[in-house]
Structure formats: C-alpha cells, structure tokens
Design a protein around this nucleic acid. Structure first.
Lengths: 231, 231
DNA sequence: TAATAAAATTAGGCAAGACTAATTTTATTT
DNA sequence: AAATAAAATTAGTCTTGCCTAATTTTATTA
C-alpha cells in the first residue's frame, strides 16, 4: 500500500527555502536566455560555490523537479516548472501589494517579496491575486503568472536594440537592484515613459536618449540593456 | 575601533527563525502566567527536547536577549522583550490582514501568520498597521502591541472563573488551534458573543451555559478555561 | 535524612546546506 | 594532437539546530 503511494505520488510538494531559491534561479535563467544552464551559471547567479550547486542538483533531481544532463545542462521537469512558476507568481503578487497597498517605493519591494514568496499556503496566492484585482504585470513590468500557470506577454526587446531615431515606451526592467531603480527614478523614468533614441555612440555603445521629449541624456550600454521596451 | 563597536553595539538585531520562535515562546510563557520559565516548560511548549532548549538558552544569553538563572528561570532582557514584542505585533497584524483583507476563516489564520511574522523589514509592521487602520485587537481577541511596544488590555478571566448565574461577553480565546476554533464556530460563539453560566457540574467542572440567550449547552472545563471573557 | 523521581546538563551524533581544496572531465588553444 | 584552461565533481569540513543517551543536579517523598 505504501509502495503504491510512492508510485503514484512521487512528488514532494513541500520544498525548503533553499530548494525554492534554486528552482526560482533555474526558472529565471531559463526565461532570460535560451542558453544551457550549467552549474557554474547557477552558482554565479546565486552567489554560491559550484560545489554547493552540484549537491543541490542531485537533490532536486531526486525530487524530480529538474533533469540534469552534461550535454543539455539543467532543465526543469513539468513539476519543477509548475512549482517555480508558483514561486514567481507569489513574488510578483507580493510586489504589487507592497507598492500599491503599503506604499513602498519601487526600489524597496524586491527584497521584501524575496522573503514573502516563500509563505506556504494553498490558497494564499489566489486570494491575494483577487484582493489586488488580478493584476497582469508587477511594478517592474514582469508578467504575473495566473493561477493556471499562463501569463501575459514578456517583453524582450531592450532600449539597446532600438534603432537610431526610433521611439519606444518603457515596458519593464531587467534589473531589480535598488541602485538601478533609484537611477531610473533620478532620470524620471518609470513604466510607460516615452523614450527616443537620438544617437548610439560607436566607441562604447553609449546611448543618447530623450526622455519624454526632454533634453538629451547619455546612458551606458549596460543601462540600455536593462530597460525592456514596447515599440 | 572594532573593540569600540563591540562595546557600544552589543546587540545583534538579526535573529534566525529558530531564535525568533524561542523568543516568542518565552514571551508567551511569561505573559500567560507568572510562573518560573524552565527549560522543560520551553521544551514542552515548542515540542522540542530539553537538551536543545539548553543549547538555545546559551545562544540567546550570549546575544543578551535573555538571562538565565537556575533559581529564577529564564527572563527576557529589555532588548529581548522589545524583539519578542515586535514578533508578536507582526503576528497579530498579519492575522487581521488575512481575515479582513483576504477573507480567511478564523481557524486558518494562525498558522499562516506564524510564517509571516518572520518577514524582516524595518517599516513593514508600521505600514501594515496603518493600512489596517491601527487595530487594537487581533481576530482572537489578543491585543496588538503598538509601535511603541504598548498595548491594550489583555483579558485574563476565563469562562470557568464566572460564577453561576453570571453573564459575560467573549473577549478573546486562549487557544488558537483549528480544532478549538472550529468547535467555537459550531457553537456559534465568536468575539462579543454573550454567554450566561447556568450551572457548574461539581463532578468534572463541566459548564452548562446559554449562548446568546439560547437553549443550554454543556461544555468541558478545558473549554471554559480556553475562553477569555469580559464581565 | 535517605531514597527516589524529576529536571537540567553534558557528550556525542545527525542532516541540511554552505564552504575549501583536490581531482577529474571537458573545452579551447597552440 | 598535445598543452593548457575552464568547468564539474568529489572528499572532507563547518555551522545551525535538532536529536538520544548518559550523567549530574535539584526536588520530592517515604
């Protein structure tokens, strides 16, 4: 009887804090680029040692949340995708709550949501979603996965991809560090801000832009690659 | 210079999950009764082994959050009281949020708040407090500590203390297990419900009561001792 | 007061999840 | 293809926070 249970319910739905953070990290790497997800990439992303990552890869493989193949790298299983999506859903919903309901600033919410996303209750995300009015995007412009796992369009074109003279609107940000978000605030850029690319400096790919039709400002290539746009 | 830092800033404001749970437990034992707080009492309350408690007593003593004396038992230092009060404040505020904003039932909120109380952000409790309209009591009738540490009256008289024929109103509950709260709901008892004690059975101290003027019901002594009243 | 019971403590161990150092495997150059 | 560099892996260690078992201390009772 116990054997049957093991056969048909092989998934352990409770994950540790650490497991959840690895899952989320793998999910993010998978979404960000189509690249192979290596232990080194995960280690860099989490600020951990590759040796620790190898340990966790074994653990998550045993729990059937990922598959690991030296050639293909790490891949989320269907269950792993589901679980990671739920964590991301909770994270983004809490960000909306913190900004809209508690009045936090743009640059403060990420770190707090980083803790709140791990609160485990079967109906919490759905209740919060309803309470917030089923938002489609979080304050950084990232789409919030729905209860069924589906989500709105993810923006992938960056300001650095815009061609000279072109116009765009800021759709999302690729970086959630407070240093970047505070810089954006200083430049008066938020989600929806209209930007024109005036010139691209060949030497270092710096961008000369006009924010909301105002005077020109120069920003770095790194900056341009961190701003996702809608054309 | 480092030495100076140690001298004047001896308190470590970041506590682990486990440390916070011990602090909260000690705080509760201290509030519940004026009894000596022994390692065994803490162990029972947390469901841990006394040997583990002794380890943590050493750790919390080193962090200057408690004092331990074999004669007097465990006592919270001023800092320990402050930190424990903040955890309790967060717990009770989240309970209000979960019930009022997310529509959870009375018996579901305690366990979730048990996780949420550990979210660390300097202004979170104060923002949540404001968002909720500065509630005085949580859904179980426990007073919510204010930002300054002060709090409204705690009820201490129980239904079992009421004298025969006397009337009271339910002010709070001493037990937050879902089995107890579901039983209360079944009996149609909530905070504010008017109860009359009709008779006390000498044999086992069972109580014959009338809820909201309705027909008589008999409840156990254990039940009576878990209901806090306002006379 | 001596005997017994209960509580507190010490000693040693275990699992999780991180680390370093050493080694093996894979990729990249020359 | 051989040499070198980089990545992956293994082995062993550390800390936290728990455990059990054994021992010591304190309380209780005959």
């Amino acid at each position: 009887m116990l054997f049957c249970l093991c056969l048909y319910n092989p998934i352990n739905y409770m994950h540790t804090l650490s497991e959840e953070n690895y899952l989320k990290c793998i999910y993010r790497l998978w979404q960000d680029k189509g690249l192979k997800i290596t232990p080194t990439a995960i280690a860099e992303s989490l600020g951990n040692n590759p040796a620790s990552v190898v340990d966790m890869i074994r653990k998550l493989t045993d729990k059937q949340l990922i598959n690991y193949d030296k050639k293909k790298g790490v891949e989320l299983t269907a269950q792993g995708q589901k679980d990671a999506t739920l964590i991301v859903r909770r994270h983004r919903l809490w960000e909306v709550f913190l900004l809209e309901k508690l009045g936090y600033d743009w640059d403060e919410i990420h770190d707090i949501a980083e803790e709140m996303e791990h609160i485990k209750d079967a109906s919490l995300a759905d209740r919060l979603d309803k309470f917030l009015g089923f938002p489609e995007y979080d304050p950084h412009g990232d789409p919030i996965p729905k209860a069924n796992g589906k989500m709105a369009k993810r923006y992938s074109t960056t300001l650095a991809d815009l061609k000279t003279g072109g116009y765009c609107r800021v759709a999302a940000v690729k970086d959630t560090t407070s240093s970047f978000l505070q810089y954006l605030q200083k430049l008066n850029i938020s989600i929806g801000t209209k930007i024109q690319l005036i010139e691209k400096i060949p030497f270092d790919s710096s961008l000369v832009i006009s924010i909301d039709g105002n005077e020109r400002t120069t920003v770095s290539q790194k900056f341009g690659e961190s701003v996702l746009i809608d054309m």
